[in-house]
Design a protein around this nucleic acid. Structure first.
Lengths: 182, 182
DNA sequence: GAGGCTATGCTTAGTCA
DNA sequence: CTGACTAAGCATAGCCT
């Protein structure tokens, strides 16, 4: 065989993807990839994660383990800072590490705050337009037992089919040329 | 040449890493990797991201887009100003002062952030109550408008991802025959 | 759009500094 | 912890269905 079947993964320039279809595809695939990495960290390092994301169109996505609220609550009640620990050089070393961490956290917190404001604005907008969004899927999937998770999965597939049918019907009626469904 | 220089990346079982040093190393590296992926999504797809994570020891890490430049620089240059010179008592004294100042600012920032969070959560709750009343999977799909159905569809994909991940993880764990999730 | 495939770019475990 | 390096595991862009 001379030619190869596909070009394989090609290098992509780090810039905004203008083509809408490419962008949606990339977004979806990469989001899945990130979620998988979240799971890895949760399992291997026992981490707790809260994640919120909005697309250009303000479509919300979230991920939380355990419940996203639990993670957020932790931010409100940080561990009491150690007042003093100047026992030995080892303690000093720890202090230094702590500065780095605190610095990093402080910078990130600034971003977090800014992000939080943006998100609130987005939510307000959604709320006004009565566009209810992500709620139930924030349920702690991790806490379900095997049967429940299977049932949920099955139910999902059913509903997904129903949605696809509905979408298909509407697209058929509306034809194309207007805003398409993602 | 007979032997190879390193073993390269070896497959890692999806289970909790017990060795503390390995765990810290893995955590740090993977966290960086995830941040990089955040950046990719932000740039290519213009996404807005808020991320919060706690280690077992409740060490906080966060990431937030807008105001991202600061965060990104921080990722690439952990600590620009000070070199990693060895211990100097004068420097140590300053470090300690810095801790207090940072802590103070940190607390202030937390307060602000909490306010924003409070408002956002209130909004989220409003949205949630409205939808969680009825079993979501019984919702009459036909009665949703275009935007709602699109949103619902996306949300299902979210759940599906979560479910698949969960199933996958449980299968992986079962294969290993060890402990439960987390 | 989702799902599957393939080739290739990207990430990272292991190791040392 | 941070950084660097290598090799191999993984993720994914481009295609196709």
């Amino acid at each position: 065989m001379a030619g190869k079947k596909t070009k394989g993964k090609q290098k992509i320039l780090m810039k905004k993807i203008e083509n809408m279809e490419d962008k949606l595809s990339t977004f979806s695939k990469r989001r899945s990839g990130i979620y998988k990495k979240f799971n890895d960290l949760i399992i291997t390092c026992n981490a707790e994660i809260g994640f919120l994301m909005f697309t250009e169109a303000d479509t919300p996505f979230s991920f939380g383990h355990p419940l996203i609220e639990t993670v957020c609550d932790k931010l409100r009640n940080p561990l009491p800072p150690r007042a003093k620990t100047d026992t030995d050089s080892l303690a000093d070393a720890r202090e230094k590490q702590r500065i780095d961490r605190l610095n990093e956290e402080y910078e990130n917190l600034l971003g977090e705050l800014e992000g939080e404001r943006e998100r609130r604005k987005a939510l307000e907008k959604l709320s006004e337009e009565k566009k209810i969004e992500e709620c139930w899927f924030k349920a702690p999937v991790e806490k379900l037992n095997g049967d429940e998770i299977q049932l949920m999965h099955d139910t999902f597939l059913e509903l997904h089919d129903a949605l696809c049918d509905e979408l298909f019907n509407r697209l058929s009626l509306n034809d194309e040329g207007t805003s398409s469904i993602q």
